[in-house]
Design a protein around this nucleic acid. Structure first.
Ligand code: FES
Ligand code: FES
Lengths: 143, 143
DNA sequence: CGCAGAATATGATAAAAATCACATTTCGGA
DNA sequence: TCCGAAATGTGATTTTTATCATATTCTGCG
């Protein structure tokens, strides 16, 4: 469903959304151990996220990565699409082609609904909304 | 969610359930192109399934793989557990640990329910039940 | 300006998943 | 009994994913 990389990326984005802003940046080395992701692997992921506008960054002294107000208004699905590509999430449970309700595979009824429900949630939920739950203690950002 | 191997295995099991029985066996070379799975890869998967009692086989001339009446009464989850291991399906969406409703991660509410719904279905649906839908044309076994 | 601190770019290595190839064992039938 | 047809066992190769390492570019500050 989600690749390991996508999980890492989501954790990183959420961590940035919780702990940074334009005036309060963080470097990879300050983050990786907090979310339990290998340092240089995380660096690569964050570069990709940054290049695709999911998170922000600035170089040089006083620089680092951060989540801008614009960034945290993005829907979660943007994060996983940048990392995993567009079709992985929408692929059929049995075959390689896209999941297709017009031509449901044998497993489609057992999972298709659940999956499209998940996708819909990812599309409709923004990063900002999600960290609300974490802040209020309703959910947790796991190691 | 499901590995490629698990998808292949499910397709193979369903194909056997649809087209074989004790008196009507099939060899890998008769199957692989019908379900679009590399021949020798499929052979390995079917050995594993056979060794774990998910499907049946007999050697020698007139031999082959088949799905017995016992086999098709198994729940679908047995197939994926044999191929993917027990925990993959139940792992948290954000971390490596098991999904845990007591300690929900930030994504849990968005997906946890959908996922446990899927698992429950895999546990409660037998192979036999599933091929009913295929036979009646309600769903399809895709390439 | 120039230096150090940071992201960025590039590519090498390691591990896991997918795929392929072949030797061995078992079994039915002539 | 023996031969060939089939699964089984073992391991090698390829591809993808995950991880590590290093060189390069940009930028604020003194
Ligand atoms: S068509 Fe296979 S999961 Fe939807
Ligand atoms: S705890 Fe993360 S998906 Fe359930």
């Amino acid at each position: 469903m989600l690749s390991n990389s996508a999980k890492y990326a989501l954790k990183a984005v959420l961590y940035l959304a919780l702990h940074t802003n334009e005036d309060n940046k963080l470097m990879v080395k300050d983050i990786y151990s907090r979310i339990n992701v290998p340092q240089s692997y995380l660096a690569k992921l964050m570069q990709k996220l940054s290049k695709n506008g999911i998170i922000s960054s600035s170089r040089g002294p006083k620089g680092g990565f951060y989540a801008s107000n614009q960034n945290i208004d993005l829907p979660l699905i943007r994060v996983v699409e940048v990392i995993d590509g567009e079709q992985r999430l929408r692929s059929c449970m049995l075959s390689i082609h896209e999941c297709d309700s017009e031509n449901p595979c044998a497993l489609h009824d057992l999972v298709g609904n659940a999956n499209s429900f998940f996708i819909k949630n990812l599309e409709e939920t923004t990063i900002k909304q999600l960290i609300g739950d974490v802040k209020s203690g309703k959910s947790v950002l796991p190691l």
